[in-house]
Design a protein around this nucleic acid. Structure first.
Length: 636
DNA sequence: AAGAGGTTGGAGCG
DNA sequence: CGCTCCAACCTCTT
């Protein structure tokens, strides 16, 4: 096997722009680089391509705030503050390379902003990192159409994933990649992961600034029309103009300008912090070489994983930097005699590969983010599924309250962290406050909400993660929710995370519970994950009465688990996916209702019934054992 | 048709 | 900490 070459020796931009792209172009180029998914200067194939355009006369790195997008996502303060910080940092990074440069921030729908900018700045090229998810595909098609009308050359460069999800999909006959092995066998034919390219040493000047807006009251207007009128509210001051306050029109907006309250997370954004975290991880070669995601501890107060996901989400760090950084460190570690390195999928490479697998699956699957119409999502008759207008096919909005009051109440309690199960409540409260929880904590709360106990649609849980997670990703988030709910990618629905036993495996003391459910902080270790089992004397001593100061468990863990397994078993026997006619016309749901009644999966069993079932199981088991013995004897 | 493999379960045993 | 069993899912390989 050929030895790995050093990252530093091979610093060619990837991919290198084809010379044909720029042939015959001797006209001075005026370039807009549109930042969307890559708030970094390192390992950005698209930015390198933009800077390699010949005869650049003027160069503007820009950001567009789409007001409609902002208004649809007026929640999730932590994610917004992380974004704004990341924008500020990259703006400073530009300033370090060229004091005339910065991130030029606009406040309006991209197609309107870009059209105006192209015209007034005399733009010849628009360059950006390719983004293949459903939302971006629609937006970017509009931009491409507009650019061809306006005679602006568009250059899209893949760089957000290890391999272009659309390319992987093509090689898979436009079918979603549903297992990691499948994804690996395709990408094995596509050559090695690209090397990270060198960050730019210089950035060209912006144009002469004839877009100065001082005193221009019409700046928020285009051809006489007030572009942001339909979206502006009393709350924010962000979208009064296409740019910001007159003193600094292209500045990164503040949280209050966007109409947001301050965030609560302690996770700081930006490409500098991203690289600090990556370097910190790489500085411990043994930890890199033996990294195992499934064996990292969800109960740890300090994150037991790298916490790189928010930075990957906003492109503060490139995936090739992580990939080759780990490869190099492990290579050196092995040469020095390091033994016992972990393999895919549990190691860091596997984690990046899973992200790519989900991106490809999303890119190849219409309605990946919901059940209805989703060809990869197994149909299970969850409570609180999205409801659609039969005529328009649109989701009914505002969402009506379901007549399943129990499910509505359970969902609210889950969301707010008051289920009465301290492990679940601590995770949900940490999620809301920090915008991040450990990967396995996400598994635990997702399993509980869907197939484990509550039997509530993964769509609802996904929305809460969408609202609160800083690192929310349009492919990984629905993908992982389908995984955890046994709707796709994974199917062993009888493997359910215990609400007490699971966290106890890695932390008997309940540190995370004590931090995020402080009302329980004085409970003895023995009862920290199940405080309702503590004798009243213990509850009094801990100064927290269960049922008063902290809720009683909202359901019976074992009974609900058995019920869920029985129901999913029925749903699996139907073998329908989200795009089946029986799902679209509602007959699948009705069929399951009848099946649940017939199999006793329509209600929780009484204690006596459960006892009888247990005895029945035991009888069966001993019967099988004697049969096993019989067959074994026959073989001999 | 049968068997192996699948990132991340729990309980009980040594 | 690693093993087996539990009751049994899907997909891919042979």
């Amino acid at each position: 096997m050929a030895p790995q070459r050093s990252v530093k020796q091979e610093v060619k931009p990837t991919p290198t722009p084809t010379p044909a792209l720029f042939d015959g172009n001797t006209k001075p180029a005026r370039v807009v680089y549109w930042h969307r998914t890559d708030l970094r200067l390192t390992d950005s194939p698209a930015l390198s391509t933009a800077l390699s355009i010949p005869h650049i006369e003027a160069f503007w790195p820009i950001w567009c705030f789409d007001p409609e997008y902002v208004y649809k996502h007026r929640v999730g303060l932590n994610r917004w503050s992380f974004l704004l910080e990341s924008m500020k940092v990259i703006s400073e990074e530009y300033g370090k390379l060229n004091s005339k440069q910065r991130l030029w921030v606009f406040r309006g729908r991209p197609e309107l902003v870009l059209k105006k900018v192209w015209k007034e700045w005399g733009i010849t090229h628009l360059v950006y990192e390719k983004d293949s998810n459903a939302y971006s595909r629609i937006r970017d098609q509009r931009i491409r159409d507009l650019a061809s009308e306006c005679g602006v050359q568009i250059i899209e460069v893949h760089g957000r994933h290890l391999y272009d999800p659309a390319e992987v999909g093509k090689l898979n006959s436009n079918k979603p990649t549903m297992t990691l092995h499948q994804w690996q066998s395709i990408t094995n034919k596509m050559g090695p992961v690209g090397r990270p390219n060198q960050p730019p040493e210089r950035i060209p000047d912006p144009g002469d600034g004839h877009l100065g807006t001082e005193g221009d009251e019409d700046w928020g207007r285009y051809e006489g029309e007030d572009l942001n009128a339909h979206i502006r509210t009393e709350v924010d001051t962000c979208f009064e103009h296409l740019t910001g306050p007159l003193v600094d029109p292209f500045s990164v907006p503040t949280m209050s300008q966007l109409g947001f309250l301050p965030s609560t997370t302690t996770i700081r954004g930006g490409t500098v912090e991203a690289h600090r975290r990556l370097s910190l991880f790489l500085s411990n070669p043994t930890a890199v070489a033996t990294f195992s995601k499934p064996r990292s501890e969800p109960t740890s107060l300090e994150p037991s994983t790298t916490l790189l996901s928010p930075y990957i989400k906003f492109g503060c760090v490139g995936v090739r930097e992580i990939w080759w950084g780990c490869k190099e460190v492990i290579d050196t570690w092995r040469k020095k005699g390091g033994k016992g390195e972990t393999k895919e999928p549990e190691n860091m490479f596997g984690q990046l590969q899973f992200r790519d697998m989900y991106a490809c699956a999303e890119a190849c699957t219409p309605h990946f983010e919901r059940i209805r119409g989703n060809s990869v999502c197994r149909f299970i008759d969850w409570s609180l599924q999205n409801q659609y207008d039969p005529k328009s096919g649109q989701e009914i909005s505002p969402r009506p309250r379901s007549d399943n009051e129990e499910a509505e109440e359970r969902f609210e309690a889950w969301r707010e962290g008051r289920t009465g199960f301290p492990w679940i409540d601590a995770c949900m409260r940490q999620l809301k406050v920090e915008g991040w929880i450990h990967h396995l904590a996400r598994h635990s709360v997702a399993c509980f909400l869907t197939r484990g106990q509550c039997y509530i649609s993964w769509e609802r849980g996904m929305e809460v993660f969408d609202e609160w997670l800083i690192d929310w990703d349009p492919a990984s988030n629905p993908g992982n929710w389908m995984w955890l709910s046994c709707s796709a990618f994974f199917s062993q629905y009888f493997r359910v995370y215990g609400l007490v036993s699971w966290p106890q495996k890695t932390d008997k003391t309940g540190a995370l519970v004590r931090k995020y459910c402080p009302e329980l902080k004085d409970y003895p270790d023995k009862y920290i994950y199940a405080p309702h089992l503590a004798p009243i004397g213990v509850q009094q001593k801990a100064n927290c009465i269960i049922g008063e100061d902290y809720p009683l468990p909202m359901l019976d863990e074992q009974a609900c688990k058995n019920l869920c397994i029985a129901r999913i078993k029925n749903a699996y026997s139907l073998a329908l996916h989200g795009d089946a006619p029986e799902v679209l016309d509602g007959s699948a749901e009705e069929k399951l209702r009848v099946m649940h009644e017939e199999t006793g999966a329509d209600r929780e069993k009484s204690g006596a019934e459960r006892g009888e079932e247990e005895r029945e199981k035991r009888r069966k088991r001993s019967g099988n054992e004697s049969l096993d013995g019989f067959f074994k004897k026959q073989k001999v």
